[in-house]
Simulated scan of single mutants.
Amino acid sequence: MARVGAPASAHDGPSRLVALTAFGTNPGALLGHVHVPKNLPAGAPLVVVLHGCTQTAASYDHGSGWSRLADRAGFAVVFPEQTHANNPNRCFNWFASEDTAQAGGEAESIAQMTETMIARHGLDRGRVYVTGLSAGGAMTLAMLATRPDLFAGGAVIGGLAYGTATGVSQAFDRMRGHGDTSDAALVELVRSGARGHDGRWPTLAIWHGGADATVSVSNADTIARQWRGIHGVNATAVREERRGTAIHRIWSDAQGRDVVEDWTVPGMGHGTPIDPSRGERLGAAGPYMLDVGISSTAIIARSWGLIAAPDAAVAAKPAAIDRVAKIAIPVTPKPAGKPRTAAPAGIQATIEHALRAAGLMR
């Protein structure tokens, strides 16, 4: 593996990641980067981390702090990376059915990277997890849906439910919070993606900003409905608490296992919540890396058993959840060379306008 030493952007430091090579046929034409702590023992866990639009693997690692936490806690991390050739805004193509199926696209490339890391470093197949932001969050759900045998759990940040968009036009609608789908249909989308899976389903944590102007926070409810249905848990059987500024809701299955969690950060926009100056001191503020005084990286890792729980949890009756639905949608399709559903006339101008409004383009 070759060292990747160049900064991801002007405000990022040198990358802590190395390139992952020879990981399979790579039908989705993705790049792979990894961080493996020194002297990592056999049987360690693995976390797969998927960046958001306009980001790189290195910039998302710099902002979220996953590789630094891996050094402290003893687990490996793999960062699949989108390319400009696949998507001009570096979005994982969560709205393209050919990239979100078990075989033949980006989801298969991510699975190949994951399998390669398990085999190459002797990692624990029973402790493999996946997380991502925005388009990476939507692709996180694609991985959980299509490879429930591979992942024990996942965490989606500012993402969208699996299978609910099959093209750019539908992607815009879903990100706005339009085009609701029945609970039964949402569950069937996942079961169809899993191709007859009859084992245990991965657990899921959902994170969303209450003032997200890029992906409507109503999508968090849609994801929760989809995965409560998969786990067969009752929507009313919920526990609620406040953790710092965040509202935390938890649903458990009949065996008492927490299987679906929902974290809402009131007033937070579109991005990954971090806490670089307190607590675990992970990550760095930047575009879509939001210092709101709560480290989603640490909380997610703790829920997966990767780091120890604190001595006492802070819990209180939650205030009303302020959920705001607005838009700004970087979901450009892949250009020629890897076939995609054609975008409607004028869609590029609309996307560029949205990107400028969101501060993603000049």
Rank of each mutant, 00 (worst) to 15 (best):
S15Q: 12
S15C: 13
A22P: 07
F23M: 06
A29C: 13
P37D: 00
K38Y: 05
P41T: 10
G43E: 04
A44P: 11
A57W: 09
A58Y: 00
A58C: 00
G63M: 09
G63P: 05
W66T: 04
L69D: 01
R72N: 13
V78C: 09
F79Y: 14
H84G: 00
A85W: 05
A85M: 09
A85Q: 11
W94V: 04
A96E: 11
D99H: 10
Q102I: 12
E106K: 10
A111R: 12
Q112M: 08
E115D: 07
T116I: 07
M117T: 01
I118Q: 08
R127Q: 04
G136R: 02
M139A: 09
P148T: 01
G153N: 09
V156P: 00
Q170N: 05
T181M: 14
W207T: 02
G209D: 01
V215F: 11
N219Q: 15
A220K: 02
T222D: 03
G232E: 07
V238M: 06
R243A: 07
A254N: 12
D258M: 12
D258T: 08
W263K: 06
T264K: 01
M268F: 02
G269P: 10
D275F: 00
P276V: 12
S277R: 15
S277Q: 14
R278I: 05
L282H: 00
P287C: 15
L290P: 10
A308Q: 13
A308G: 12
A312W: 05
I321H: 03
D322S: 15
V331Y: 15
A336Q: 15
P339D: 07
Q348P: 09
A358F: 02
